[in-house]
Computed example of a mutant assay.
Amino acid sequence: MIFHRLPASLAQFDVLLAHNSQDKPQVRAIANELKQRGLKLWLDEEQILRPGSSFQQEILQAIPLVKTAAIFIGVKRLGRWQVLELESLVQECVENNIHIIPVLLPDVSMIPENLRFLRRYRFVSFLQQVSDVEALNLLEWGITGRRPERKLEPNQVIQTNVIKTDDLSSDKAVDYTRLRNLLIAGEWKEADAETLAVMLKAFGREAEAYLDYRSINNFPCTDLRTIDQLWVKYSNGRFGFSVQKRIWESVGGNPYAILYETFEHFGDRVGWRVEKDWIDNEGVNFSTSAPEGHLPYSILEVHFQMEICFFSRAKTCKV
């Protein structure tokens, strides 16, 4: 069944909210937030009014009327037949050039194996609560294609007035101003990439594009502390090398006893390992809904022995 899609300018709804009925309360809460932002939603309980209507048929018929489909995944997951119906819905969306956004509800950290056909799309995660403003901003951006203006909280406004007090010291004459500004703005993905860039610059390895054992073992402590303090400060203590080191030590991390099992426990804690599978770049959660220690990621993704080397250096530098 292929429908004739209306031009985006004529579509009646910004987004269709597809979900398991057992997740209705959480989806309804997110829907209310999106309505307050001026978005027009297709939600089954509001659009399917006639008794005896087929939910699946009504949803398929709504496809030509929407610009985007948000597919919600909750802890109840989906039954076998629901998975087949959802796969059919996704196929219809693809054929009608409709933007697809998987949305992970609280306590769901990764798209499950039986929905792996959704893993090609970047997801939005409400890992902790449905009122997560960062996740709502990302979802609005995905629906509209326009990134919402980020409103600073009162404590962040104060921070922007005192950023001159930030210690941006470097033994290698590296300028950390851009990293600080990205962190202040909550641009976590860009800040993660900038962290790798400044660390490569600090050791003169821009051409290689990665840090090796020698560079990590000799990385300047002043620069390591500067980077860490910026991440910790502007993430309100959620992210940073010192946060990762603390978690590493809490699961038994020891530079003198290298156990892969320990690194697996660390990966589980910081969200780099989900259901026994290590995430890749596409699986990184660049929002404050990510687990503690989830970021920075790019520096430490190479190999588990490299991470152990890095944590050893962080301890030496008193990070």
Rank of each mutant, 00 (worst) to 15 (best):
A207W: 06
E292P: 00
W272F: 06
A193S: 13
L200E: 12
G237Q: 09
D268C: 02
Q244S: 07
N217L: 12
S289A: 13
A290Q: 02
T195A: 02
W248C: 01
D280K: 12
Y297F: 14
E208N: 10
R238V: 03
T195W: 02
K201T: 15
E194G: 04
A185Q: 15
T195L: 03
N281G: 05
D268H: 07
D212M: 10
D277G: 10
W278I: 05
A191H: 07
A202Q: 03
L224P: 00
T262Q: 11
E264L: 11
E301K: 15
I279P: 03
I299V: 15
A197V: 08
I216T: 13
D192N: 13
G240Q: 08
R205G: 05
L211A: 04
G252R: 01
V284A: 11
A191C: 09
R214Q: 10
K276F: 08
I184V: 15
N254L: 07
S250K: 14
I227G: 01
G293P: 02
A202H: 01
V232H: 11
A290I: 06
W248P: 00
A191W: 05
W278A: 10
I299T: 08
S289R: 01
L200W: 12
P220H: 05
K233E: 05
E190A: 15
E261D: 13
N254W: 04
